[in-house]
């Protein structure tokens, strides 16, 4: 059904693995994470996962990718192919959310607000590059909770 997005995740994972070292080396801030602190995605209740996943993919599509330009054309190509995979996956997650009437519980809504606060706490380029460098945190969570 629409909630099965494993093919897209594998594509995104492959694209990210190719540029992970490059992207993470552009993020000098060790002491702050957008996705994993203070709240871990792994603590999201299973009933909220569909809704939070859709919100997170929307966050990346609307806020992150557009600010992730580099001087390296290979990296840029990988970023745009990841962004395209995100667009199609977000559409599927949106359908999944509608079909299953997924709602975000209060706790998960709070987690997502914290993620946005972490993001707004940095200048936009640093925040976007850090978020991109944390894609494996998002993918690990989504694959584990399949």
């Amino acid at each position: 059904g629409a909630c099965r997005v494993s093919m897209s995740l594998a594509e995104i994972r492959a694209g990210f693995t190719a540029i992970k070292a490059d992207i993470q080396s552009r993020d000098p801030i060790r002491t702050l994470s957008i996705l994993s602190h203070p709240h871990s995605l792994h603590k999201v209740k299973s009933s909220d996962r569909c809704c939070i996943a859709h919100q997170l993919f929307t966050f990346y599509v609307d806020k992150v990718f557009k600010h992730c330009r580099t001087e390296d054309s290979f990296v840029n190509r990988k970023i745009s192919s990841i962004a395209n995979s995100f667009l199609s996956t977000r559409r599927k997650l949106g359908q999944c959310r509608e079909q299953n009437n997924c709602t975000c519980g209060e706790e998960s809504t709070e987690k997502f607000k914290q993620i946005l606060a972490n993001y707004e706490g940095l200048n936009v380029t640093s925040a976007a590059m850090k978020s991109l460098g944390e894609l494996d945190i998002l993918l690990d969570w989504m694959e584990k909770s399949r």
């Binding site: 060790r30 002491t31 702050l32 994470s33 994993s36 602190h37």
Partner: peptide
């Protein structure tokens, strides 16, 4: 060592 995202 440091846990990524934790400040110490």
């Amino acid at each position: 060592y440091a846990v990524y995202g934790v400040g110490k």
